[in-house]
Design a protein around this nucleic acid. Sequence first.
RNA 1: GCCCUCGUAGCUCAGUGGAUAGAGCGACCGCCUCCUAAGCGGUAGGUCACAGGUUCGAUUCCCGUCGAGGGCGCCA
Length: 580
Amino acid sequence: MPVAAPLPDIRQHLAGLLRTALASVAPEQHDTEILLERPKQASHGDFASNLAMQLARALKANPRQIAERLQRELPPSPWVIKTEIAGAGFINFTLAPAARTAVVHTVLAHGGDFGRGLSKGKKLQVEFVSANPTGPLHVGHGRGAAYGASLASLLAYAGYQVAREYYVNDAGRQMDILAVSTWLRYLELFDEIIPFPPNAYQGGYVREMAEQIKLAHGDRYVHPIEAIMTCVPDTDDLEAKLDGFIAAGKDLLGEDWSYVHGHALNEQLTDCRADLEEFGVHFDVWFSERSLYDTGMVAKAVAALEAKNHIYEQDGAKWFRSTAFGDEKDRVVQRDNGIYTYFASDIAYHLNKFERGFDKVVDVWGADHHGYIPRVKGALAASGADTDKLDVALVQFVSLFRDGQKAAMSTRAGEYVTLRQLRAEVGNDACRFFYMLRKCDQALDFDLDLATSQSNDNPVYYVQYAHARICSVFGQWEGDAASLGKVDLTPLIHEREAALCARLAEFPELIQQGARDYAPHSIAFYLKDLAADFHGWYNAERVLVDDEATKHARLALALATRQVLRNGLSILGVSQPASM
RNA sequence: GCCCUCGUAGCUCAGUGGAUAGAGCGACCGCCUCCUAAGCGGUAGGUCACAGGUUCGAUUCCCGUCGAGGGCGCCA
């Protein structure tokens, strides 16, 4: 450490001073928690403690008097130049300048690891997006992707070993509907015109897949309308009709059905994966729902619940007694036709996650799935798993506004703005950052007109601009940035410089807090504040001044600021341009 | 009806058991001979939805009311 004496963690240091005073003033209260907060106002010093107020009740004394007694017993410290009693009984600490600016050296010494938490020795999984691969991702999925990716990065940065996972629903009815939609479009290409079901997938990408199949295999999958229609019931029930088309496909195509099905799945999954990679969202594992069936995990999970007497039969179906675990009604795990429900495979999936040895499993779900939590936790509890290991982060809806009108969003109707379109219009950086400007439990109104036509107002540019400005300064300075690591910082005397240093020092605490609360949005807000502190300072004080000592100290501060901007932006998956 | 989330400045939203509740946009007044004006400084703007409770202290925690959005399928 380049300072004269090793700088302790300043918060711990102050807590130690207070503990010493506490032992002297009220030894019987030695286990009182010592809290230190950063006052909002500079006039209240660098740190404040409410210890005296906490003790007021036990000591039956006025908080201000207790504070004065504590203040008298505080050991002297080279890092503290002033303590004050203020307000209702706060003890305010004002730090020596060297204690304030020391963070600059710390940042420069740690570089890209500044703020990174020590390894917690815990394995953690974040599962997110997990959209059905039945069509392009839309802006709602985009929010889940941005949130999940930023959360995973944040948790990793905080010291957890993080695995990112996408659960692929490749086994359910929705995939069958996509397959049959593709097949029907394919038949149209051979003038086997069947009125396209309104509840099948309408999007243009379905026609494209049909064209591909025709190109590759010609008329191999063509069957006459009459044969198909014999499988389709004459009813007003659209879902029953759709199931009839699916049955026809499976019947008539036989083995070939799995080709059509597989082609559609593969196309959509490949597209989805590419889309996310372009968005800077990476997954370690793409977990197949179907694999749970193939390996018998679903049947095994249900059988295990059955063995523990948590399953009963009614109307030919098997029900899980989730009411015994706080759910509002029991849930079907196996339908009367023998087919397992999505719920059944999800039980197996979560048991599988737990078997993989994660200390914590985080599911990022759309808010519309909230009613699903009690039954999943119930099934896990019934299976003997530790439900405290499962956390669910609910992400609220995204409403899209174009021309002041709320845009329609329907996957089946194919009427929605895709994540791709959004990224093309707004740009990846602005997209990622914009998504992080709301906490996840807040509904997000995404105004396309604002995000596109006025994209210069997007706060991401404000933050990136701070980074670019610093790069520009270093482009004009002829010295070696590596030499700044041990430079003398005493020329940093202005209030703005102290404020900027304090902001930098907050970063490691912010990481831990954000990780604890699953709140990556706090990083985005912090970066805005950091950029504001920098811009304010930059406008008030010139960096490249004639005085060498001052210049070097300011360069060091600028460099440290750039480093923290980079560390924060990396967590959010936002680039750090050197010029704009 | 039951469940979830939300209600903070004109608008969009942060935030917190603690001191004078913050930012952006919008409004108004200023700042480039000077490291990027995608910037900065200043002014105006608030009953933190409402009513109780816990607390030395509540915008924050708890209960209720009102309001907004969402969810309640042998769909996924």
